[in-house]
Nucleic acid binder design. Structure first.
Length: 768
DNA sequence: TCACAGTGACTTTTT
DNA sequence: GTCACTGTGA
């Protein structure tokens, strides 16, 4: 495509953003304003028109999906952009650290610990604490890293002022360094540290990348900002794109201030606003804007709906969450009969747990669906086992991995035996007083060799088990090294993209040559030789088969990588950084079930935002900045819709196994009543203001037959509730079509109930 | 070392 | 209501 062609489809602000040069640039891009198009066009334009070398362009995003999409679209516009570096922040950090491992105190084979591994590691060092307590500490450590606070930073008190926390953090860092591995925070933090301490490394990077672009800049955290500052020299052209109204990751350290103060931080910044929305019909944009306008801390912008007017968003109050799922299913099925494909629909919810009801209902009604994001494939036990094995093959310092799999399947190496080996290894390697340092200092410390030395000290059963385990690890290591040595051709693309750093996406992963299926051969052998396949198959008839199939899936995934040490490193890194499974060849025509967070960057012709209830969305007692973030989340959800938007809010919901009375979300009150069409029953609390109830064809979900037993629930009647004890009905009335009672309990509390749904909890006490 | 039952937390959101 | 972790007993 020629620059004339792709520039001609842009509006004037977009074109201005693409062709801007000579100063830092901040693009404030509203929802649906074509921001990805601007970035990719800018990449193409810089290469084609300005003679910028494609490999000196760096563009970072937050999600792998976004990185992939950007790479794909840029390549379509300008094939040479294949050599540009388009990655996520974390993947860029890993890329940097592989090349500068020694400076960061890492093993170049490092693997990336997820929260689970990190918790295990710290838990070992703090045996007095429960796993849950440790997990909370790990969580705060990760927050500290988001803000670039080390254990000794005085500002660490902002996260947790308890000195024990700083100690735990220090201990964690020590142990993590000893394993030679990193956590997610390190992928950002360590490159910053290396570049600040070694200016020659920093300057090399600065001369490598003359153009740096950041997408979704509103979601960057302090550490990422520091990274950006480190790689951006006076000569670098810096361009960031973002929308302060779509900042929804504060909870994990995102700093909206980064975007709000960008122009101050980088003097001479040009600001360009993209305010033409190409996605949503006007009435949808209207309510989205009304809600987000209630926020105070925002730059403010006015989106114009280019696509013109359309149907008003529809608000429905189902009686219960079962009615909610039924309503959605019916709405979608009916539309299907009119020729609307399944894939036009997305069901949005605040928390992953809410997907379950929809899945059940859709299965029942044979509506094809896919759940996005919650695929916990890599968190499954059998997968983590296999990955731990692979990590240990690469890195003999990985105590967490050793501990996890040394006795899986059972080899007579219980908790005590495994800890003994680890303790001995630690004494050997990390205790300065130890004299038994037989391994030269340059040699890699290795739990396996320590285990081999201790072999004789174990009882018979443990001895043979351990010997077998060591044998498997050594066989696998030998296989890896042999392949790496002899088959230099398999290894032609020296993995980790040393030659071509563009490989953020799985689509560029090269198929290994000839009949071999690359690393898959290795992984396949490993899961078998390790006994993991037999172990999991034997555990449970049904689940076992599934687990073996999952491991097989892992084997398949490995076939995209060369059989070599580097190939394995790359494979593990890819898995840690991109846990979204490849969208299998599932039916593309299916309804999308997705959390609101996960929808960022996506769009659907028809969207249903569910669970708009106080306590769910927004989550309980949110206030101040947290509430503003929830409001932005609502804004993000609404602006995903192109043509039709539906909102549902249940009166009753089962929560924690308990049936709760729900109030409509406060966001619903922030929408003008004229801007929205209410279908079906309106709860009394919401009915004030005289909205008219229009009963459309789809309101069937809200209609209830008269309860023949209503007569029982009379004021004065005594009853017993499992949780609250004895009480007396103080009031009984009807709201909508529902019978509602108030109960005064003996313990002093007064509660509202819907007998229709809660009768099983409310035992009427027989009257004499 | 393993199986079982009792307990308590859990529902944010993700790289 | 469900899951994961803990402690007990065999």
């Amino acid at each position: 495509m020629t620059p004339e062609t792709y520039l001609s489809v842009l509006n004037s602000q977009q074109r201005e953003a693409v062709t801007h040069e000579g100063s830092p640039l901040l693009i404030l891009a509203g929802a649906g304003s074509g921001k990805t198009r601007v970035i990719t066009t800018k990449i193409a334009w810089l290469i084609a028109e300005r003679g910028v070398e494609s490999e000196s362009i760096l563009a970072v995003t937050f999600t792998n999906k976004a990185a992939r999409e950007m790479a794909e679209r840029a390549r379509r516009l300008e094939p040479r952009s294949e050599r540009s570096v388009l990655r996520t922040f974390h993947s860029f950090g890993a890329w940097f650290l592989r090349r500068n491992a020694a400076l960061a105190g890492l093993d170049s084979n490092f693997t990336i610990y997820d929260d689970d591994d990190a918790t295990t590691l710290l838990g070992k060092a703090l045996p007095a604490l429960t796993r849950q307590q440790v997990s909370a500490i790990v969580h705060r450590i990760s927050r500290a890293k988001d803000y670039c606070y080390g254990p000794d930073d005085p500002l660490l008190a902002e996260i947790d002022s308890n000195p024990d926390f700083a100690d735990a953090y220090r201990l964690y860092e020590k142990r993590l360094r000893e394993t030679g591995n990193v956590d997610f925070g390190d992928l950002i933090l360590l490159p910053v540290r290396v570049m600040n301490e070694h200016h020659e490394v920093r300057d090399r990077l600065r001369s490598r990348f003359s153009v740096v672009m950041v997408d979704e800049y509103q979601d960057s955290n302090v550490a990422q900002f520091e990274l950006l500052r480190a790689i951006t020299g006076p000569e670098t052209y810096l361009c960031v794109v973002g929308d302060d109204d779509q900042s929804i990751y504060r909870f994990r350290g995102a700093e909206v201030r980064n975007i709000l103060t960008f122009a101050d931080t980088f003097p001479g910044t040009t600001v360009i606003r993209l305010e033409q929305n190409y996605r949503s019909k006007e009435p949808i944009l209207d309510i989205a804007s009304q809600v987000v306008a209630k926020n105070e801390g925002r730059l403010g912008k006015t989106l114009v709906a280019v696509r013109g007017t359309g149907r008003k968003p529809v608000l429905v109050f189902p009686g219960s969450q079962d009615d909610e799922t039924a309503f959605c299913a019916e709405l979608i099925s009916n539309a299907r009969k009119q020729g609307v494909p399944w894939q036009d629909w997305a069901i949005l919810y605040r928390t992953n747990a809410q997907s379950l009801g929809f899945e059940t209902e859709f299965l029942h009604r044979k509506i094809p669906y896919k759940v996005v994001g919650s695929l916990k494939f890599y968190e499954r036990e059998e997968i983590k086992d296999a990955l731990a094995f692979l990590s240990l093959v690469l890195n003999g310092r990985d105590e967490v991995a050793f501990h996890r799999i040394a006795n899986k399947p059972a080899r007579g190496l219980g908790e005590v035996s495994r800890n003994r080996i680890i303790d001995e290894y630690r004494r050997d390697v990390f205790d300065p007083d130890s004299v038994s340092t037989e391994l030269g200092f340059d040699e890699h410390p290795d739990i396996i060799s320590v285990a081999a030395r201790l072999l004789e000290t174990f009882s018979k059963k443990a001895r043979s088990g351990l010997a077998e385990f060591i044998h498997v690890i050594e066989t696998m290591r030998a296989m890896l090294d042999k392949e790496a040595g002899s088959a230099a051709d398999t290894n032609a693309q020296p993995a980790a993209n040393a030659g071509n750093p563009a490989g953020a996406e799985r689509s560029t992963a090269k198929k290994p040559k000839k009949g071999a299926v690359g690393l898959a051969v290795f992984v396949d052998k490993l899961i078998d030789a390790s006994g993991l396949v037999a172990y999991h198959r034997g555990q449970d008839e049904v689940a076992g088969t599934q687990r073996v199939a999952n491991m097989q899936e892992l084997v398949n995934a490995a076939s995209l990588y060369p059989l070599s040490r580097e190939g394995l490193v790359e494979f593990l890194e890819h898995i840690e950084l991109d846990r979204s499974m490849a969208e299998d060849d599932e039916n593309p025509d299916s309804v999308t079930l997705i959390t609101v967070h996960n929808t960022k960057g996506l769009e659907f012709p028809r969207v249903i935002i569910t669970g708009l209830e106080s306590g769910i969305f927004p989550r309980d007692d949110k206030s101040g900045d947290d509430l503003e973030e929830e409001r932005r989340l609502m804004y993000v959800g609404c602006t995903r819709a192109m043509d039709e938007l539906y909102l549902t809010s249940c009166s009753v919901r089962r929560l924690y196994g308990r049936t709760e009375f729900m109030e409509p979300s406060r966001f619903l009150y922030e929408i003008d009543r004229d801007s929205i069409e209410v279908l079906g029953n309106i709860p009394r609390t919401f009915g004030i203001g005289g909205a008219t109830s229009s009963r459309g064809a789809i309101s069937s979900a809200g209609k209830m037959p008269e309860d023949p037993l209503a007569a029982q629930w009379k004021p004065g009647r005594k009853l017993f509730h499992d949780d609250y004890g004895y009480g007396i009905i103080s009031k009984a009335f009807t709201a909508g079509d529902e019978l509602v009672i108030m109960v005064q309990f003996e313990n002093g509390g007064e509660k509202r109930f819907l007998p229709k749904y809660q009768a099983h909890n409310l035992l009427l006490v027989e009257q004499d």
